[in-house]
């Protein structure tokens, strides 16, 4: 299978330090009952880090700990670093309690980005499950601010219920973009829901894009990514044009703590964005 695609762009900026830097919360937005977005800027006139879509930071809640959180804002918005966070445990709950003006520690950016440079001129299919839309958002925003550089845009987003859909208003505004298709689905609908019901992979055969030229970027639970790859293969989109993100417990984010190993890969350093064919061997086994 010949392809013009490399692994994710190795030239993305990467932090090297274990020492966090202080960042101030400049705004906070409640997305859903358990998910919120915070925008951060360097405290005390510190230097703002640039990043590439798909990269993540380690956010430190004072005395509680660090969590890996993807950057969900636009890479072209130089003023702030935006993070969308689901409250699931100790650190994310501590981050949830931060009001504007509070300070957090930040290390980053880390990890491999989405292959934005290499996909110009292509149809792009973004497939997101739940909070998986957050790491895809910087890529989507970049596409819409350079709309002419890309082909048709398809965004397929799934959530557990209508109340769990993040970036709800924005998804609707993207529906208005030229040559763009946004399809939403939930596992459990309510009376007001007028989009799809079912797992997000069922949207793939219905979406209109050219598998011969499209590139897919997928972020969500592992099981959803496995089935997305199967569906894409079925409609003729080869593996080497599917990019997925992997998630594992991580402590250091610089390939030294060992936690995020997935076969030979350190997800923090070699990922989290991987070309699907590169990890398929390990992806096909359980409990790797």
């Amino acid at each position: 299978m010949s392809t013009c695609f490399d692994d994710p762009d190795p030239e993305a900026p990467k932090a090297v330090s274990m020492l966090p830097e202080p960042y101030v919360v400049v705004s906070r937005n409640q997305e859903t009952a358990d998910t919120f977005t915070i925008a951060l800027r360097p405290a005390d006139g510190g230097v703002m880090r640039s990043f590439a879509p798909g990269q993540f930071n380690m956010l430190y809640a004072f005395g509680t700990g660090e969590s890996a959180i993807s950057i969900s804002g636009s890479p072209e918005d130089g003023g702030v670093l935006v993070h969308t966070i689901r409250r699931v445990g100790a650190v994310t709950s501590a981050l949830d309690r931060l009001a504007p003006g509070s300070v957090v520690g930040l290390r980053g950016p880390f990890g491999s980005p989405w292959p934005m440079q290499q996909v110009r001129g292509r149809d792009l299919v973004f497939v997101a499950g739940g909070i998986g839309l957050a790491p895809l958002r910087p890529a989507i925003l970049q596409v819409f601010s350079h709309r002419a550089d890309y082909g048709r845009i398809v965004i397929l987003a799934g959530a557990r219920s209508p109340a769990d859909v993040i970036f709800h208003d924005e998804l609707h505004s993207w529906m208005q973009e030229p040559d763009t298709e946004v399809q939403l689905t939930v596992d459990r609908a309510d009376a007001d829901w007028h989009h799809h019901v079912g797992v997000v992979t069922t949207l793939i055969p219905r979406a209109r894009f050219d598998p011969a030229n499209a590139v897919a970027m997928v972020c969500g639970p592992e099981i959803m990514m496995r089935f997305t790859a199967v569906e894409m293969a079925r409609i003729g989109l080869p593996e080497a044009r599917i990019f997925v993100t992997l998630e594992r417990n991580m402590k250091c984010a610089v390939g030294l703590c060992g936690h995020c190993q997935f076969g030979p890969e350190f997800i923090c350093r070699d990922g989290p964005v991987f070309r699907h064919d590169r990890i398929r061997h390990w992806f096909s086994h359980r409990e790797v």
Partner: peptide, 8 residues
């Protein structure tokens, strides 16, 4: 391999 512990 290592892990981390935060204390205040």
């Amino acid at each position: 391999c290592t892990t981390v512990e935060d204390v205040a």
